[in-house]
Design a protein around this nucleic acid. Structure first.
Lengths: 218, 218
DNA sequence: TGTACATCAGTGAACGCGCGTTCACTGATGTAC
DNA sequence: TGTACATCAGTGAACGCGCGTTCACTGATGTAC
């Protein structure tokens, strides 16, 4: 499998023939819409990584620690993807709708590409160990916070304040993730339709937040 | 455990000493915020029900069939609870807000009471077997449909049409369930705050849908 | 450059365990006469 | 009412399996001199 004597990584420290990344990659390759992180066994991951079950322990304390690593990876990966889409859209045309549509489409695109990391975040928020659930929640909160900042920036630019932007961001995040979870099992030709639905749903929240604020300040 | 020779149930048919309900009750009693349906083993459920592992098969083909039975039970139970809350609220004061608030509060009340059935629906929508996921989705769709009918009835009574009421109902359902899933692990004193947040979030969707419709028909 | 030594990443074998499923059974229940 | 019989719900024992974790090990890598 792995070449027996690869070169040293740096000047100092022993060569790590097995890296955390190898184990993570093995775990990812085992995931599918049928198999969730919490259904993976240590031995299975080790087998896939081409190492002794035993050697797993040199990289992670247990499967839980691996699961948390996967979640954190998934969170930062998704935030980066959506962040890029937002920046891109903002550069080309500075309207709320296009930024929204671009973000949703980037999300669906990633979903369509079968990104295992995204699947993890979407589908495993509420099962597994305490540490695992907390890790998912932490990533969702990061996401919400970035979205909130973005919403506030956008609404400022348009002179249309939002009511409780933090709640709007939370509502959007949770709803999109919940819808995304069902989309994982959907055939590809239905994804475009779902994306359109999502755009409308998010607009409802944004428009609602905007009008509640308008009522408030009358 | 069970009395050895209970009386016959009816005139016809053998007495079933073990019923499906016994097994379902045993499974429910094993669930907690730490233990999900898909983590239960057949032997564990049998043990809890006080029967031989073997005897499980007389009631269900496998754990999957039991899981689907649990989901269906959970769905109809929740729909009934929310339905009652809606009817109650509608009788006493026919305003959108009070119906909304009452429904959300009934939901949170049920959650606070630690209803295992509700936990199942909230938290296990995206893991488990294909049959399992489909069962959850079916129940959510029932729920969405009832909500849609209700929204349409309400908005008709107030002369304020909604834009895409089906999408609004879907957005609300998915969002509430996603928020509810995080609430399962929350300490009781935070539930009231969460209920308030939920009310605002749902209002955003409703107000948004209303205003999108108004724009549309201008 | 060469040699002796310490370190420690990765291993192979073994453990005890709970699992799902099977088999042939037993004994209470309901039926026929 | 009494008796012989068929049915079939529930059982106890056993199976092979994959699991997580442990142990003492080995042998390549890096270091000291």
């Amino acid at each position: 499998m792995t070449s027996p004597t690869p070169p040293t990584i740096g000047a100092l420290g022993r060569k790590a023939v097995i890296s955390r990344e190898d184990v993570i990659a093995a775990a990812l390759s085992l995931l599918s819409s049928q198999r969730s992180v919490s259904s993976l066994s240590l031995r299975e991951v080790a087998r896939q990584a081409g190492i002794a079950p035993n050697s797993f322990y040199r990289q992670f304390r247990d499967m839980d620690e691996l699961a948390v690593a996967l979640i954190d990876l998934a969170g930062s990966s998704l935030r980066q993807i959506i962040g890029e889409a937002r920046d891109q859209a903002r550069k080309s045309a500075d309207t709320k709708r296009s930024v929204l549509r671009s973000s949703v489409q980037a999300f669906m695109q990633q979903l369509k590409s079968g990104d295992k990391l995204l699947h993890i975040l979407l589908r495993e928020g509420s099962v597994g160990s305490e540490a695992f659930k907390q890790a998912v929640d932490r990533q969702l909160n990061y996401f919400e916070d970035e979205l909130r900042l973005d919403l506030m920036r956008l609404s400022e630019a348009h002179n249309s304040d939002l009511y409780e932007p933090a709640l709007a961001a939370k509502a959007i995040t949770r709803m999109v993730f919940a819808m995304g979870a069902t989309a994982v099992d959907l055939p590809e030709e239905k994804l475009a339709g779902l994306a359109e639905q999502l755009v409308v749903m998010v607009r409802m929240i944004l428009v609602g937040s905007q009008h509640l604020q308008a009522e408030q300040s009358e």
